[in-house]
Simulated assay, not measured.
Amino acid sequence: MLGVKRSSFYAWRKRQGRENPARDALRLLVIKHFNASRGASGSRTLMQELRHEGHEVGRYKVRALMREAGLKCKQRKPRCEERREKAHACHLRGNELSQG
Rank of each mutant, 00 (worst) to 15 (best):
H52D: 12
E49M: 14
M1F: 10
R38Q: 15
K32A: 13
K14D: 13
S8N: 11
E81G: 13
G17E: 03
L92V: 02
K77S: 14
E49V: 12
R63T: 07
M1R: 11
V62I: 05
V57F: 00
G54Q: 00
R15D: 12
K72I: 07
K86V: 01
H55K: 12
V4M: 11
L2D: 15
E81P: 05
R13Y: 13
V57N: 04
E96L: 08
N35W: 06
A69E: 05
R76F: 05
R15Y: 06
R67A: 08
G94P: 04
E68A: 09
L28F: 05
R83D: 04
L97Y: 03
L26N: 03
R15W: 05
G100E: 08
A69G: 02
L2G: 15
R15N: 14
R38Y: 14
N35T: 09
H33W: 04
R67Q: 10
Q16R: 10
E19A: 09
M47H: 02
A25G: 10
S98H: 07
V57T: 04
E49D: 13
K14I: 07
A11H: 13
H91F: 06
A87C: 05
L65V: 02
S41Y: 13
A69V: 02
D24G: 05
V62A: 01
N95G: 02
R76E: 12
R59A: 05
L50M: 01
G100M: 08
L71T: 02
R6C: 06
A89P: 03
K5N: 15
A25D: 15
E85I: 07
A40M: 14
V62G: 00
R18W: 06
R6D: 13
R15S: 12
